[in-house]
């Protein structure tokens, strides 16, 4: 019985954590290039509503429709990120306010809600959904079966993506250049690396991943759309990047950990355990984020492991 609770908790944690993995990975890449994008929440919502809209309006085989929906979500996130990239890299405005503007623009009461109304996709049950697959036919193995071999394709995709990102960041020349752009854009520029191009590419890629993270809600977790669906996950993703010291592998761990905290309340209540009010469990992930941030900013972490030194600072040869 208790083992079942733990397994159910882990399975739900992975489900809750996957959008955080995708969106967090996107933010991580953007921040590695030196661009802080606080618009993750807005980009996720745009991805969620765009992906859902495509999956509802497009006909054809389910697998193709879902793939097109993912592409639509990634494109929507990328376009949102492009606005931020233009303002923060080319116009060199304050990145904090620009990111906030993006979240207000695309967020709960903004463009994502507008799109949802124009295409009338709010409050209806989706036609297509990524369901868990029985990987290698091993889902009935004890313990690891339901956790490792019975997930939906996007979960496996996100894990592979984390591995690819690790390889890219730390084992390739482009990854090295990317990190140098985030550390010291002037030095990178002197080496002949195109700082602007790197920053644009990774900010837009980050937006596409945030869009996919949002689409995980509407295409895998529960196929429906409502305004403000992501409920602050975009912000938690940003916090996770700091928590993970800008490393994809730690990000994956952190995302599942947070997923577990989110899952704790409902999992206990579903089994009739009402030790504490549900609001307590709902608030735990947010309090945990604060605790984690404080922990990450003190003690041995003070050496700023992994923090891109030029994060949030626009680059221009003029030197301003």
């Amino acid at each position: 019985m208790n083992r079942n609770i733990v397994i159910a908790l882990i399975v739900t944690a992975i489900g809750n954590g996957t959008p955080l993995v995708l969106a967090g990975l996107g933010e991580l890449l953007a921040e590695r290039s030196g661009v802080l994008n606080l618009g993750v929440e807005g980009m996720m919502l745009m991805g969620a509503v765009s992906g859902f809209t495509v999956s509802q309006k497009l006909g054809g085989p389910a697998a193709l429709v879902l793939l097109a929906a993912l592409l639509g979500a990634a494109a929507a996130g990328a376009v949102m990120a492009l606005i931020h990239a233009f303002l923060s890299i080319t116009v060199r405005v304050n990145q904090i306010v620009s990111g906030l503007a993006l979240t207000i623009f695309a967020g709960t009461a903004g463009l994502s809600s507008y799109v949802g109304q124009v295409w009338k996709v709010g409050g209806i049950h989706g036609l297509h959904q990524y369901k868990a697959v029985d990987l290698f036919g091993l889902k009935n193995l004890p313990i690891v079966g339901p956790i490792v071999f019975h997930e939906d394709p996007l979960v496996y995709f996100s894990v592979i993506l984390v591995a690819v990102a690790m390889w890219y960041l730390f084992r390739t020349r482009t990854g090295l250049y990317l990190r140098s752009v985030g550390e010291s854009p002037a030095a990178a520029d002197a080496m002949g690396i195109n700082v602007t191009r790197y920053r644009y590419a990774h900010t837009v890629l980050g937006g596409a991943l945030a869009g996919l993270g949002g689409a995980y809600f509407t295409l895998a977790l529960a196929p429906f759309w409502t305004d403000g669906l992501t409920a602050g996950d975009g912000w938690i993703a940003i916090a996770l990047v700091i928590f993970a010291f800008w490393r994809p592998d730690l990000l994956l761990l952190g995302a599942y950990l947070f997923g577990a905290f989110v899952a704790l309340g409902p999992t206990l209540q579903a089994r009739g355990i009402h030790a504490l009010p549900s609001e307590f469990f709902s608030a735990v992930p947010y309090v945990m984020t604060v605790v984690v941030l404080v922990a990450a900013s003190t003690g041995w972490a003070k050496r700023r492991l992994g923090t891109p030194a030029a994060l949030g600072v626009p680059y221009s040869r003029e030197g301003g």
Binding site: R92, S113, Q117
Partner: peptide
């Protein structure tokens, strides 16, 4: 009347103010 128009407009206003800062 489109929902979300107000937030969208607020966002655009913010973008424009920011761009105008230059």
């Amino acid at each position: 009347f489109p929902a979300g128009l107000v937030g969208t407009m607020q966002g655009i206003i913010l973008f424009c103010v920011l761009g105008g800062e230059i």
